[in-house]
Write a protein that binds this DNA or RNA. Structure first.
Length: 333
DNA sequence: TATCCAAGGTAAGTT
DNA sequence: AACTTACCTTGGATA
């Protein structure tokens, strides 16, 4: 790997147990009728919230109005406290009202966690304000849920997201996993886990630039180093009140308020977080001009209130996806 | 074929 | 504290 650059053991990451000697997939299915509210796997995974899944046919993000497809998606999942105690390869597809899966372990708790199948989406819709923009966005992608990405991978993903298209953000995460993540071979197929903080911290800025990360390269390296050294821990933000948690995350290099909100919403379960990206800022101009209050914090508070408070992040994500894919117009007309 | 432009922003420097 | 500006790279649009 990289002689002379071994690092002290991370104070944060627990060692990942070795994979079973002869791993093989077990299979199962989740009856989606049992969920509270609808579910759409393709919309959930291809809506620009997560960049950690791959579509088996390689056609990720090809269509702008991607929803309702029956493609196989796959990802390598790190151990999740209280959910799964070893690394797992998980494949899933949605067909005939069922979520079929194949995995190196029981995938039900993992999929439930990652795809927020435990959310009561009907109740969330009920709690969302009755506004034309929100109604159209929720109708266009019925069943889209937020995700719970693994925190470190989510943090790196959204550092990479600055001034990037979704397909390229995904490509960057794929490249990081391919080049620096552990190989996991299951049933003759090789998958790549997302790199650990140690693995990324050991790279140089130049190496990361060679992966086309551009000016994000030093951000990724230095943030990985901060996590690996125990200087800060993204999961620690989960215990703080929302705005303090956002401030906490901005101490990472390359993380401003917008990226911090993305990590809070798409990984740490702060469903009230509303990342103020270019699309949402456009919708604020067109629909909620009174919410434009100058500072990020003030504008955020105002739009969060318009979007219904506790579940405002759900509304944000539907609006983001709908605007980006051209399903609804940003103009009021 | 060459040039231009914008993509889920952030950090650093000025006023 | 609010306001500029530079920053890597690349796919797609325009000339």
């Amino acid at each position: 790997m990289s002689p002379g650059t071994t690092r002290p053991p991370s104070a944060i990451e627990t060692p990942i147990p070795p994979a079973p000697v002869n791993p093989s997939m077990e299979t199962g299915a989740i009856d989606l009728d049992d969920l509270d509210g609808a579910f759409d796997l393709q919309a959930t995974v291809e809506s620009g919230q997560t960049y950690l899944w791959d579509r088996a046919d390689g056609g990720m993000y090809e269509t702008t109005r991607a929803h309702g497809g029956d493609h196989w998606y796959e990802t390598v999942v790190p151990p999740i406290a209280g959910v799964s105690d070893e690394r797992a390869v998980v494949r899933a597809r949605q067909v005939d009202g069922r979520l079929e899966w194949a995995s190196t372990t029981d995938a039900v708790p993992i999929l439930t966690h990652l795809l927020r199948l435990d959310d009561d989406l009907d109740a969330i819709l009920e709690a969302t304000p009755d506004l034309p923009l929100l109604n159209r966005a929720f109708e266009a992608y019925e069943g889209m849920r937020l995700v719970r990405d693994p925190p470190f991978a989510c943090l790196i993903s959204f550092i990479c997201s600055a001034q990037m298209r979704v397909a390229r953000i995904h490509g960057m995460q794929t490249a990081l996993a391919r080049e620096y993540g552990d190989e996991v071979t299951v049933d003759g197929r090789t998958y790549h886990a997302f790199p650990t903080p140690d693995q990324l911290a050991a790279r140089t800025e130049a190496e990361l630039r060679d992966l086309s990360l551009g000016y994000r390269a030093p951000y990724v390296q230095r943030t990985a180093e901060m996590v690996a050294d125990g200087e800060a821990d993204p999961t620690a933000a989960a215990d703080l009140p929302y705005e303090e948690a956002r401030d906490y995350l901005t101490q990472f290099v390359g993380v401003g308020e917008k990226v911090a909100d993305c990590v809070l919403l798409f990984s740490l379960g702060f469903l009230e977080a509303v990342p103020l990206d270019t699309w949402i800022r456009t919708s604020i101009e067109d629909y909620f001009p009174d919410c434009e209050l100058g500072s990020y914090a003030e504008t955020s508070r105002a739009i969060r209130e318009q979007f219904g408070g506790a579940y405002a992040g759900y509304a944000q994500t539907y609006v983001f996806y709908a605007l980006r894919s051209g399903t609804v117009s940003s103009e009021t007309s």
